[in-house]
Amino acid sequence: MNIFRLAGDMTHLFSVLVLLLKIHTIKSCAGISLKTQELYAIVFTTRYLDLFTTYISLYNTIMKLIFLGSSISIVWYMRHHKVVRRSYDKDQDTFRHYLLMLPCLLLALLINEKFTFLEVMWAFSLYLEAVAILPQLVLLQRTRNIDNLTGQYVLLLGAYRALYVLNWIYRYFTEENYVHWITWVSGIVQTLLYADFFYYYFQSWKNNVKLQLPA
């Protein structure tokens, strides 16, 4: 495992920890999109079906279980926890996320590495992950005051995606037979979706003002 991949996984892990910290200690999910969290729960459930078929490493298995467990529990907290759910910005979080799933499924049926159930689900999870952040970005834009933890959560997620791109470049040049077009294209699309957010985040950081996205 190269340094970009490890750093990518760690920023992904930190992003989840930041979100869990907000939910568990502050008992708030203000500014967090339930739509995005539901999409992530579906992304990890469909991608990690190979937990039952392929063993890669202990690291791999543990990380998969962490991402599965955390994404499902975040959705549960936002929907059912009696304190946390009251802070959910339901009226602002209106992105019709189910509409994203059908095109992703159709694309997965058309473009996959092999036409089997696991491979179609794997491709579906990658296409869906590429667009899963959209409801969150729309919610951020509508929220006037973005709190630090929410900003950091999205920043860490974006960093995770950018580090994965560096990891693919590194692997392409150092490993034989390392070609994953589906992962690369959907991953690059996903990373580009964060570009705008990155821009405004660093502007606010540089000028030492509160993060606000233009309407």
């Binding site: 991949r5 890669i56 991402f67 794997w122 994965y164 990891n167 037979n177 390392y178 992962t183």
Partner: peptide
């Protein structure tokens, strides 16, 4: 065709 690469990423 190419040798199958394990899907070892998360």
């Amino acid at each position: 065709s190419k040798a199958k690469v394990n899907k070892d990423e998360l």
